[in-house]
Simulated scan of single mutants.
Amino acid sequence: MVKNLQSGSGWRLGCDRAASEFQGLVGGDDWAIELTAAEFADFCRLATQLAATMAAMSAALSDQERLTCEQETSRIWLEAEGYADRYSLRFILLTGRRGEGGWAVAATKQLLQALANSNFFEAE
């Protein structure tokens, strides 16, 4: 059971540093996958970077222009797709047991706000 769990409509994020193998959790309303500490750290970092990139692109695009931005490490791939101020987010695990998931626009916005206001790996 994840100790530090945050959730909203269509999203879940959690962390349990005491867990032996899978310390992170990402999910939606009806799905979830546990991540290793390294995968979860990569997820948090890349999602934050994608949010910053999408925000930076808003000045260069018209309101009707859609874009897709990707980030990846050796462990995980993330993609933001949509408009600079509203977009979906999805990921694919690239190692081990594999897995993928994603969030709709409204859930992505809330998930990114939770990431910005939390440090899941601080002392619990």
Rank of each mutant, 00 (worst) to 15 (best):
A106E: 14
L35D: 05
G27S: 04
A32W: 07
R86I: 01
W31Y: 10
A80Y: 12
E70G: 02
A60I: 01
R45E: 15
Y83K: 10
R75A: 09
L94S: 02
E21G: 01
S74Y: 04
L13Q: 07
G28E: 08
E81M: 04
A38T: 13
A41N: 11
W31K: 12
V105Q: 13
T95L: 03
L13P: 04
E122I: 01
D16I: 00
A60L: 14
W103T: 08
F43C: 08
E39D: 11
Q23T: 13
G28T: 13
L67T: 12
A107H: 06
N117I: 00
E122H: 06
E100M: 13
Q110E: 15
E39L: 07
G99N: 08
C44W: 01
A55I: 06
F40P: 04
S7T: 13
R12N: 09
R45K: 14
R17A: 13
A123K: 08
M57F: 10
L25V: 13
A51T: 03
L89V: 01
R98P: 00
V26K: 02
L111F: 11
R17D: 11
W103V: 07
N4I: 07
E72S: 14
W103S: 06
L89H: 08
R90I: 02
G24I: 06
A84R: 02
N117S: 14
F121H: 05
G27Q: 03
T36I: 09
T95M: 02
L5F: 03
A38W: 00
G10C: 10
A104T: 02
T48S: 15
E65A: 15
E34K: 12
F43Y: 15
N4L: 13
R97T: 11
L115W: 06
Q64L: 10
T73Y: 09
D63W: 03
L115V: 09
Q64M: 05
S20C: 01
E72T: 04
S20Y: 03
V26C: 06
I33S: 04
G10P: 09
A41I: 10
S118C: 12
Y83E: 10
R12W: 00
C69S: 12
T53S: 12
I92S: 11
R90C: 15
W103K: 04
G102V: 05
D16W: 02
L46Y: 14
Q64V: 11
L93E: 04
L67D: 04
A80K: 10
A123T: 10
A19I: 03
T68A: 12
C15V: 07
E81D: 13
R66N: 09
N119H: 13
R98W: 03
V26W: 03
A80L: 05
V2P: 04
F40L: 09
T95V: 14
S118N: 15
L111V: 04
T95W: 00
V26M: 06
L111S: 05
C44D: 10
S58I: 01
Q113W: 00
T48M: 05
A80R: 10
M57E: 15
V2M: 14
C69K: 14
K3M: 06
G96V: 06
G96C: 06
F91P: 09
E124N: 08
A37L: 14
E70P: 00
T68Y: 02
A19N: 14
A84I: 02
R98N: 00
L46G: 07
E122G: 01
E65T: 15
L13E: 06
T95F: 01
Y87L: 10
T36H: 05
A51W: 01
A32P: 00
E122R: 10
D16Q: 13
F120D: 05
R66L: 11
G102F: 03
